[in-house]
Design a protein around this nucleic acid. Structure first.
Lengths: 198, 198
DNA sequence: TTGAAAAACGGAGGCACCCTCCGTATAATC
DNA sequence: GATTATACGGAGGGTGCCTCCGTTTTTCAA
């Protein structure tokens, strides 16, 4: 048994082709550009054009619109998850929660397309989005659990609830002044979830 | 002066043709059906088919997708506005606010397409949606103002803010258990907006 | 180096939808 | 009944979605 590359049990080891991975990168870059400009409903053919590739190539790499989204915004979602860990280590429970929520708003404001990524994470029907969804739910879940454990926050609102509120509030992020509005609302929400110390 | 129908200053008075108003009704009924089944992005050609009319007729009556939405859901939006008035007369300030918010959730849950109507009212870029938007903002605005005047609610969150939160939270209304989740969130939000009596 | 064979490419093609335009049909008025 | 404003319908040109398959490129073993 044992050849060189093709291992015994069908678990082939052939590396991905050069052109394939190069094109994958091009598609991701193009998608970022096009989605930023045209919103999440932008044409996939436009993405392929922007990448200088055929539409067939795009579909082979990313069979669904969602899978493309997922790939484009995976990194940003991961950053948010990391931020949660940092805050957990560095700030008191309620403040950490509040800051993380605020950071999300800033993300949406800054990184064009982040709203789409969040939305996707929260509503995505596909299996692929489970990754993002899980990551974020867990991130906020840890912050929440810590605050609950400290007796500072009500226990009847879960991570998924909070994520829903966050994403929803950011959903209408085109109106002027949306950012301040969402920050006020989030603060009020956290206040409402608070158990005052006595 | 005064003729019979055609008034002097170009403000013609010719009644709309029978077939025209009949077809308008058919289109509205069809739109309600199709949007309920297929969501707000459903095909306009499907609406025309459902109504047994040509696509041209649809476009003459409703030049944009939004104008059709507007017409379909105008009544439901008006009902919500009326409810606000009723509650204003019948319930104490904070309770009225809370109940109105809850009623909205029920609307979304019950009347398919109501979510789309709310969304449209809140984000619609068109002039036509101003009507719905105004109506709802004013409705919740009155409830809010009363509660603020009674010293029961913080003054830094406006009607538009609250509407944003409401619509946003209902936005992801497909997930299982969304309804309970939104109710919890709204309660917490109102709690957070409260000024405890002392 | 070379020559299969695996893997990837590209875009034509079929379908649906969007919206406009204008010849034809029909209701309202005289 | 004739006239004319009004409405109807759907063909047509454009775009996007996604699939399928003949062609091209890369890899790997001999």
């Amino acid at each position: 048994m044992s050849g060189h590359a093709p291992e015994h049990a069908g678990v082939t080891a052939r590396r991905p082709r050069r052109d394939a991975s190069r094109n994958r990168d091009r598609l991701l870059a193009a998608a970022k550009t096009v989605f930023s400009a045209g919103g999440p409903a932008a044409s996939l053919e436009a993405v392929a054009r922007e990448a200088g590739l055929g539409i067939g190539t795009l579909y082979r790499h990313f069979p669904t619109r969602e899978s493309l989204f997922e790939a484009v915004y995976r990194r940003e979602v991961e950053q948010l998850a990391e931020l949660a860990e940092t805050l957990e280590a560095e700030a008191p429970p309620v403040a950490a929660l509040r800051r993380w929520l605020h950071a999300n708003v800033e993300f949406v404001a800054t990184k064009k397309g982040m709203a789409a990524a969040l939305e996707l994470a929260a509503r995505g029907p596909s299996d692929l989005t489970a990754y993002s969804s899980d990551l974020l739910t867990r991130a906020v879940g840890r912050l929440l659990a810590r605050a609950v454990a400290a007796g500072a926050i009500r226990a009847d609102i879960g991570a998924a609830d909070l994520l829903r509120a966050l994403v929803g509030m950011c959903y209408l992020h085109d109106e002027p002044g949306w950012q301040a509005s969402v920050l006020r609302l989030l603060d009020a929400l956290v206040d409402g979830m608070r158990i005052p110390p006595r």
